[in-house]
């Protein structure tokens, strides 16, 4: 079975194609992404209208490249999947409208699926089907969540989420404080390698006794970094940028992995998936490997290309949804920013 996936929930226009074999394993046939990230850089964050305009221009060319890479035509795929939510409403609408048109023109069934479940499904492309129960930590510029996954097409429960900024958003804001470019993840990661992660004890948000154990907060951390930098600027001392970057990064990686491990233990799962753009962060990966090994938890992380937003993860989720026997979405499918995690629920 061959499924084509379309993703436009934020600033990447993605079209991916996968083949699902009878044993549940996937084969990646195409993964084309057009990004508008450079157009957002000078604004320090994604501008929804700019992203939506870029999706409209990129949609047909990205589709063409994906079909050419796979050596297929629309008539030779079995189904089309599209991110119907959550995400930026105007951006989602471009992908959903396009997917409906491709489905109508080709007569192929259409499945509107959840973006976050797609991030988890991304891991099944390279690493095969998930165990019956696992924990997923999704960290990106738009999301920071802990999900208990008891079947990608059956039961996914959100057990924690950020109450303010997403982890990737904190990276972008701290990068700005340190005079680094947008997006902030890669430059902070690079600079942090030359710094001391224990130089400054930045706060770990929501880790008090009475705090929600699996929720995240990164807004206070960002403010703490700003205060520390301003205090040192006032003394006229040179800011130890590498130490600030390393200490900030340590605080983020520490709190993400500590909460994820605690959630895995509490919910008695032995597999953890980390996905989303921030999953590519080197310190997060290192600390997660270390702590998962100590706790006897199997860690699964898709390769960086599949961690960030892409169409292949939507094709992967779509393939599992089709295989589950679910009915296609109705002809009146629309973007839904509060779409449930499990298809059809």
């Amino acid at each position: 079975m061959i499924v084509l996936g379309i993703e436009t929930s934020c600033d990447e226009t993605g079209v991916g194609i996968v083949r699902r074999h009878a044993d549940g394993t996937l084969e990646l046939l195409a993964d084309e992404v057009a990004s508008s990230v450079e157009e957002h850089a000078r604004f320090g964050g994604v501008v929804p209208e700019i992203a939506s305009r870029a999706h409209l221009q990129a949609m047909a060319p990205t589709m063409r490249r994906a079909l050419d890479t796979a050596g297929l035509e629309l008539s030779t795929v079995d189904a089309i999947a599209v991110t119907a939510g959550p995400g930026l409403a105007g951006a989602l609408m471009v992908g959903v409208a396009a997917a409906k048109a491709y489905s109508t023109a080709s007569g192929k069934p259409l499945y509107g699926v959840n973006h976050l479940a797609g991030h988890v499904a991304a891991d099944t492309i390279e690493h095969g089907p998930l165990p019956p129960r696992c924990l997923a930590l999704l960290v990106s510029g738009g999301h920071s969540q802990l999900l208990l996954v008891e079947g990608l097409t059956e039961k996914i429960t959100e057990i924690g989420a950020t109450i303010d900024d997403a982890a990737g958003e904190a990276y972008d804001k701290v990068a700005r404080i340190l005079g680094l470019p947008y997006p902030g993840g890669p430059p902070i990661d690079k600079l942090a390698k030359q710094g001391n992660p224990r130089a400054i004890a930045f706060p770990r948000g929501l880790t008090g006794q009475r705090d929600a154990p699996f929720d995240f907060s990164f807004s206070g951390l960002k403010t703490a970094v700003a205060r520390w930098v301003e205090k040192h600027e006032a003394t006229g001392a040179e800011i130890p940028l590498a130490d600030v970057a390393a200490s900030f990064q340590e605080a983020v990686a520490d709190v993400l992995t500590a909460k994820a491990i605690r959630a895995a233990r509490e919910h008695e799962v032995d597999t953890m998936v980390i996905s989303g753009g921030v999953a590519a962060n080197s310190r997060l990966g290192e600390l997660a490997r270390e702590r998962c090994a100590e706790a006897g938890i199997t860690l699964r992380v898709p390769r960086p290309r599949l961690c960030t937003d892409n169409g292949a993860m939507i094709a992967a989720l779509g393939a599992h949804v089709v295989a589950s026997g679910a009915k296609p979405s109705p002809a009146t499918l629309a973007a839904d920013t509060s779409l449930p995690l499990v298809y059809g629920s």
Partner: peptide, 19 residues
């Protein structure tokens, strides 16, 4: 208005490409 306008444009583009 931009959001609605794009629905028709991308639908036209996708139908034309597929057909």
């Amino acid at each position: 208005p931009f959001t609605g306008l794009r629905v028709g444009m991308v639908t036209g583009a996708a139908l034309g490409q597929a057909l």
